[in-house]
Amino acid sequence: MLRRRSVLILGVVVLMAFDGLWLLHRQTRAGPPVTHIELDSLAMVVPTRRPAARLVDGRWDMDPRPDTERPFPGLPRLAYVSLAPDPTLGHAVRMIRDLRQRGICNVLIREGGSPSGVLDFPGGRDRGLQIPALVLCGEAIGDG
Results as ranks from 00 to 15, higher is better:
L15T: 10
M16Q: 08
A17S: 10
A17K: 01
D19E: 09
D19T: 12
D19V: 07
D19W: 09
G20K: 06
L21A: 13
W22M: 07
W22G: 10
L23A: 12
H25L: 09
H25P: 01
R26F: 08
R26M: 11
T28I: 12
T28F: 13
R29I: 13
A30F: 10
G31D: 09
P33F: 08
P33C: 12
V34S: 15
T35Y: 11
H36A: 13
I37V: 15
E38S: 15
D40R: 04
D40W: 03
S41T: 15
L42N: 08
A43F: 08
V45N: 11
V45D: 13
V45R: 09
P47S: 09
P47W: 06
P47H: 10
P47T: 09
P47R: 07
T48V: 09
T48A: 08
R50P: 01
P51A: 06
P51N: 12
A52M: 03
A52H: 04
A52E: 04
A52K: 02
A52V: 05
A53H: 05
A53M: 08
R54F: 05
R54V: 08
V56Y: 05
D57T: 06
R59Q: 14
D61A: 05
M62Y: 03
D63W: 01
D63M: 06
D63V: 05
P64N: 03
P64A: 04
P64G: 02
P66M: 10
P66A: 10
P66G: 12
T68C: 09
T68A: 14
E69F: 14
P71R: 06
L75P: 02
A79C: 01
Y80Q: 03
V81T: 02
S82R: 02
A84W: 03
P85N: 02
D86T: 05
D86C: 00
D86G: 01
P87H: 01
P87V: 02
T88L: 00
H91V: 00
A92L: 05
M95T: 03
I96A: 14
L99W: 00
L99S: 00
R100W: 02
R102Q: 14
R102A: 15
G103C: 04
C105F: 04
C105T: 07
N106Y: 15
V107M: 04
V107I: 06
L108G: 08
R110Y: 13
R110M: 15
E111C: 10
G112Y: 14
